[in-house]
Amino acid sequence: MVNFIWLFMLLTGITVAALSGHIDQVTESALKAAELGIEVAIGLMGIMSLWLGIMRLAEDAGLIQTLAKLSSPAIRLLFPTLKKDSPALGPIILNLCANILGLGNAATPFGLKAMQELQKENPFPDTASPAMITFLALNTSCITIIPATIIAVRMKAGSANPTEIIGTTIFATACAMGAAITVDFIFRKRSKI
């Protein structure tokens, strides 16, 4: 499916540009996007190093284990295939916390770390494990209580009350998260492996 969407976007984009006489746009966009990829990765290097360093401190100090123990009933329910003391638990929990707080920059490092840990427990290394899919579903639909970026945009646009959308955002994300958990559960039951 990803292969199809990727090809579809690329080919339709080029076709539309050709038909509308903006073929130069394709070259420019493609090169710009490739450059942007490196910019994002370099930016991420610094942020990832910072948060993985802090995470290691929290791990060695026993903080992550405490956090994992506190949230383990909920996590166990969501990830029935994970072992009780799985090393993936720490980064999964931190990623979800960062998402809830709207700290997008901190969420990615923990998310990638969680994927690495989940991959170590995955019996089929080229196929997504059920735990990985549950994690991604939670990750992309997670409840957000502080949508910091959009509040800043609203402030700059001169809103009378920039934070008034916090309540509606919490509601909408709670619905999305509930849907993600339900749909994931149904798919997981329906498929084997």
Partner: peptide
């Protein structure tokens, strides 16, 4: 701990670029 950050960021570069190029062409065109 921070050491891992560099490696992971490098590893995702091809995926980042693949997606960004396809999406970029689709949107800008």
């Amino acid at each position: 701990g921070a050491e891992d950050g560099f490696k992971t960021a490098v590893k995702i570069i091809p995926f980042l670029i693949g997606m960004l190029v396809s999406i970029g062409v689709f949107v800008d065109s």
